[in-house]
């Protein structure tokens, strides 16, 4: 029986143009939705699979504002059993070390044997919360894996390394960060959605004040005016394209 805690982060769902808040401290999210990273969707799927295979429970956790319950319920709808919200008013003031410390306090309290996180958050891209968490808990950690499975108390994790597919085996309790691509996240069933709507959320206050992320300000990269050279329209442009390929020396 392996209890799995999977950590997710509510991030703005930006597909096109991004605008910033007036103080330059955040993304103006008034006109966009929210989501979690694809890495985390895969981590949720793996958490549900490991819990089901071992008879344990899968719990989803986030540190965020009250609105982050939306992302927790999405994870409940695809099979997580429980949800924990570390509720903070200004999640942006929590740096990766702060977030790791808060998650560590919850894990120490609950005792989940396996903690899964995404490889990196879709917004801040810090690449470090999972490893900081492992150090705080005194647990081994594997990074950027695509699949995990638990057999006889041993975590078997696989991911792409520089020389091929690498396999790690480590004893539980452990921490793993997940990259997209190893599993297909499932869609919520109607039953799952109904269950998620009513599920209680274990809401907790942060343990300590954040040290901060070091953010001075956000800025948009200088807008590049379009300088595109349109070679033509439709198949008639083929000759102009091949002329270009020859000039570039790629049409061998």
């Amino acid at each position: 029986m392996t209890d799995v805690l999977v950590c997710i982060k509510r991030v703005p769902d930006v597909g096109g143009e991004v605008t910033l808040t007036a103080d330059g401290q955040g993304v103006d999210a008034r006109h966009v939705g929210f989501t979690v990273s694809e890495h985390e969707n895969c981590a949720v799927e793996l958490a549900v699979q490991v819990a089901a295979a071992t008879g344990g429970r899968a719990t989803v956790l986030t540190l965020g504002p009250a609105e982050a319950v939306e992302q927790l319920r999405s994870a409940l709808a695809v099979g997580c059993d429980d949800a924990v919200l570390i509720e903070v008013c200004e999640p942006g003031s929590y740096g990766p070390a702060d977030v790791a410390r808060e998650i560590a306090a919850v894990v120490a309290d609950r005792g989940d044997e396996l903690v899964l996180l995404g490889n990196d958050a879709a917004d801040t891209g810090d690449f470090q919360v999972g490893i900081r968490l492992a150090h705080l808990l005194g647990r081994p950690v594997v990074n950027g894996v695509r699949t995990v499975a638990v057999t006889d108390g041993v975590l078997v994790a696989r991911g792409d390394g520089v020389d091929g597919v690498e396999t790690y085996e480590l004893p539980l309790p452990a921490v793993a960060t997940v990259l997209e691509g190893g599993v297909e996240p499932r869609y919520p069933s109607l039953k799952g959605r109904m269950k998620a709507k009513k599920a209680p959320i274990d809401t907790r206050a942060p343990r300590s004040a954040p040290a901060g992320s070091g953010r001075v300000r956000l800025l948009l990269p200088p807008a590049q005016p379009s300088t595109v050279d349109v070679l033509g329209e439709g198949p008639q442009a083929a000759a102009a394209v091949v002329d270009l390929l020859e000039r570039m020396g790629v049409a061998r």
Binding site: V228, D229, V230, G234, P235, A237, A238, V241, L245, A251
Partner: peptide, 29 residues
């Protein structure tokens, strides 16, 4: 499309017509 406005060069039209035409022109030359 953002990919077009950010590109160095562009051809406007259906890839299913344009790409085979490019392939044919490459083979012809």
């Amino acid at each position: 499309a953002p990919m077009v406005t950010k590109a160095t060069y562009a051809v406007i039209g259906d890839m299913h017509e344009i790409v085979p035409a490019i392939n044919e022109e490459l083979r012809r030359r």
